[in-house]
């Protein structure tokens, strides 16, 4: 019973957008001695999805902090990559600012 729970826990999907499981994240952290959420993102794709980690970011931080025995507040925060929300390419192409 105990075991089953554990198994279910690690197969939890952490990142829904990219379908990355908790186990995949823990494996990557251990294999590469990762210490930053940015690196977890690059190697597992967790946090690279449509919501850019807004849903899964804090969970990723929690897992990393557990793995490396640090407080979440001690971790290097995930680098912000604009835009804040997905934006259609045609809008990016249009956005004209006279001053430029």
């Amino acid at each position: 019973m105990e075991r089953k729970l554990q198994e279910r826990k690690v197969n939890n999907i952490v990142c829904r957008c990219e379908e990355v499981t908790e186990q995949e994240i823990r494996d990557a952290i251990r294999k590469f001695n990762l210490t930053t959420v940015d690196e977890v993102k690059r190697l597992t794709r967790a946090g690279m999805g449509l919501c850019q980690g807004r849903t899964c970011g804090s969970l990723m931080e929690k897992i990393l902090s557990e793995e490396i025995n640090k407080k979440v507040s001690e971790l290097l925060p995930l680098k912000k990559r604009p835009p804040v929300r997905p934006i259609k390419i045609k809008l990016l192409a249009k956005k004209e600012r006279e001053s430029e």
């Binding site: 690279m48 999805g49 449509l50 850019q52 990559r81 604009p82 835009p83 997905p86 934006i87 259609k88 390419i89 045609k90 990016l92 192409a93």
Partner: peptide, 9 residues
């Protein structure tokens, strides 16, 4: 691509 979303830069 015009109707596809940019998710990061």
């Amino acid at each position: 691509l015009k109707d596809v979303s940019c998710i990061r830069t």
